[in-house]
Simulated assay, not measured.
Amino acid sequence: MSAVPSITLNNGVEIPQLGFGVFQIPPEKTRDATLAALETGYRHIDTAEMYGNEKEVGQAVRESGVDRSELFVTSKLNNGFHAHDDALAAFEQSLEDLDIGYLDLFLIHWPLPAVGDFVETWKAMEEIYRSGRAKAVGVSNFQPHHLRRLLENTDVVPAVNQIEVHPYLTQETVRAFDAEHGIATEAWSPIAQGKVLGDPVIVSIAERLGKTPAQVTLRWHLQRGDIVFPKSVTRSRVEENFDLFGFELSEGDLAEISALNRDERTGPDPDTFNMVPE
């Protein structure tokens, strides 16, 4: 097993703090990329219905030779299935496509405030959680006001909120709300699709430590408590992104990187994004 630290979610489930993401990896490349990650030592895989590669993730998990109990697999509800019964059926489809027995974590992918009532969607997620076929349930791209509605109107506190986080979008307000309510923060787009890798501050720290800018950025996430899952189809990059535990950033390094915040998104704003698949 790897030296990856785990975070205990609010229901007692342990999640590896570093995982492997398969967003934007084409289905035909997903199996090999996921196998490479598992062979490197990753034990946490993050996929979604929307990505169209759940079957290939499941194939890699089954072929890896790693015991299912040692793995943490996440998927997410696609945007066209927010109605209660549709959410339950979509979850069943994810289980069938993955064919790995159960999910460790299932998330509502987007709040879609103009599309439907995500509180009712969450009540379906609660049913899924109580069935035991998802060990934990959570949300993705939820702002504090979205979360507040869930906390006021439902029973199960989300275990996780997966949001866009990187040095140019540090998300301190959302992270503080999550922490206050026992919700773990996961970071997607952790290197801002590569935009931060040429930043002089990050480059300077990387050169001083003999690490790459990506390693420094991912280490920043880990030390501030984010759960992170970089993705790559290049084996050397997959291995590089896993090599984060032989060095530490100083408090000064962390502060310098956090000071780069400019509230700059690479993805949609959750308060305005309402796209559903046709």
Results as ranks from 00 to 15, higher is better:
residue 153 N to G: 00
residue 182 G to V: 12
residue 265 R to C: 03
residue 203 V to H: 06
residue 177 F to T: 10
residue 209 L to T: 03
residue 246 G to P: 01
residue 215 Q to Y: 07
residue 230 P to I: 02
residue 223 Q to M: 12
residue 185 T to P: 01
residue 211 K to S: 08
residue 234 T to V: 14
residue 258 S to D: 12
residue 198 G to M: 10
residue 171 Q to L: 06
residue 239 E to K: 13
residue 188 W to A: 00
residue 215 Q to S: 10
residue 235 R to N: 07
residue 234 T to K: 13
residue 160 V to Y: 01
residue 171 Q to K: 07
residue 240 E to G: 08
residue 152 E to A: 14
residue 245 F to K: 09
residue 216 V to S: 06
residue 194 G to Q: 08
residue 189 S to P: 01
residue 178 D to N: 15
residue 202 I to Y: 03
residue 163 I to C: 11
residue 168 Y to S: 04
residue 166 H to T: 04
residue 225 G to N: 09
residue 225 G to F: 05
residue 224 R to H: 03
residue 163 I to Y: 02
residue 151 L to H: 05
residue 211 K to C: 09
residue 169 L to K: 05
residue 261 N to G: 06
residue 197 L to W: 06
residue 214 A to R: 02
residue 241 N to Y: 13
residue 196 V to N: 01
residue 157 V to A: 04
residue 252 G to Q: 13
residue 197 L to Y: 04
residue 179 A to I: 03
residue 172 E to Y: 01
residue 240 E to N: 09
residue 233 V to G: 04
residue 203 V to N: 08
residue 216 V to Y: 05
residue 179 A to D: 09
residue 268 P to F: 12
residue 179 A to L: 11
residue 236 S to D: 12
residue 169 L to F: 15
residue 182 G to H: 11
residue 232 S to M: 08
residue 151 L to S: 05
residue 174 V to H: 00
residue 166 H to G: 05
residue 153 N to S: 14
residue 159 A to D: 09
residue 195 K to A: 15
residue 159 A to V: 01
residue 180 E to D: 14
residue 187 A to V: 02
residue 186 E to P: 01
residue 199 D to M: 08
residue 179 A to Y: 06
residue 250 S to A: 09
residue 254 L to D: 07
residue 264 E to D: 15
residue 179 A to S: 14
residue 168 Y to C: 04
residue 267 G to K: 06
residue 155 D to M: 02
residue 186 E to D: 12
residue 244 L to F: 08
residue 236 S to P: 00
residue 199 D to E: 15
residue 230 P to A: 06
residue 224 R to S: 02
residue 235 R to L: 08
residue 220 W to Y: 13
residue 217 T to Q: 04
residue 202 I to P: 02
residue 177 F to L: 07
residue 164 E to N: 03
